[in-house]
Amino acid sequence: MRQPERPVGIVGYGAYVPRYRIAAQEIARVWAAGEGALPITSKSVPGPDEDTITMAIEAGRNALNRAQLDPQQLAAVWVGSESHPYSVKPSGTLVAEALGTSRWISAADWEFACKAGTEALSAGMGLVGSGMADYVLAIGADTAQGRPGDALEYTAAAAAGALIVGPAQQALATIEATLSYVSDTPDFFRRADRPYPMHGNRFTGEPAYFHHVSTAAKQLLAELGRTAADYQYAVFHQPNVKFPQTVAKQVGFAPEQCQAGLLAGEIGNSYSAASMIGLCAVLDVAQAGDRILLASYGSGAGSDAYSLVVTEALAAARNLAPRTSAYLKRRQLIDYATYAKWRGKIVE
């Protein structure tokens, strides 16, 4: 496991979920005669004027408000996503300009399927933990693509989660340690010129998601000398509801430890944002002294695991920006035709 020389933590956090939802039953009505088991209840859909950049900006503003930082204090703005609006032109510079940062920063885009955001988080720990910088904004944001009628279309959703890494003394939750576990596993991929990703159906499960997430989480617990019983909360990447519930059991967590951070049933798989907004939802309710285990997953494949401890500062800071539940509550259902129009699935 890795621990920075200078202790670090999350000094600000912010979630964003679009207003619109499509029910999984509505997708099944169009493609499966309304029959078959559904992996989630509904998924979030970006409005016609939303993309990864706009969602990252709002999540970033929420994180800055909670951190009570001047944007000029940020040393880096990093955006992890697999749906950057441009193939060539960074999202990070535009997000940084919108937030009002200094120009003397690092601004970049990160890529590792659904764990692009936590890659930025780990790098932020390195920059702050080494003393090279005081504050780094790491964002995971996605407007995920799903081929019409494919299993992915039921879950591929949209959201953003933003975490500001800073010195542990100012943290709302300190990060005790992290580790990453990766291997070359072709469970899910998309070439640059293809509109929709390819996935390996059942191959995305055991050798991909479950192996990497459970290995990373178990190894971190082992190296810290802990068990799941030492944690109040656990957040796992959530491509659907069943996967995180199953991996939680494999690692030793009970369902109630995962409930607060399990949002996939309501909003689907928000890819790079999924584990990060799960953590945001937990930080909305956690108490000082609570321990949180976070384990992301990115296809291709790998998992980043973190152990966090909530501080006394969280209770006051959580009220400085909308809670994750505020975004979940403003739920407006749309039909498949509207969804297809907004997501560019109607070809003229």
């Binding site: 950049i53 441009y86 535009l94 909308p322 809670r323 505020a326 509550k329 403003r330």
Partner: peptide, 13 residues
């Protein structure tokens, strides 16, 4: 891609 301000009803917490 061009981005800019819009306004929405204030989010209820």
């Amino acid at each position: 891609l061009v981005y800019g301000y819009k306004f929405r009803p204030k989010l209820a917490d």
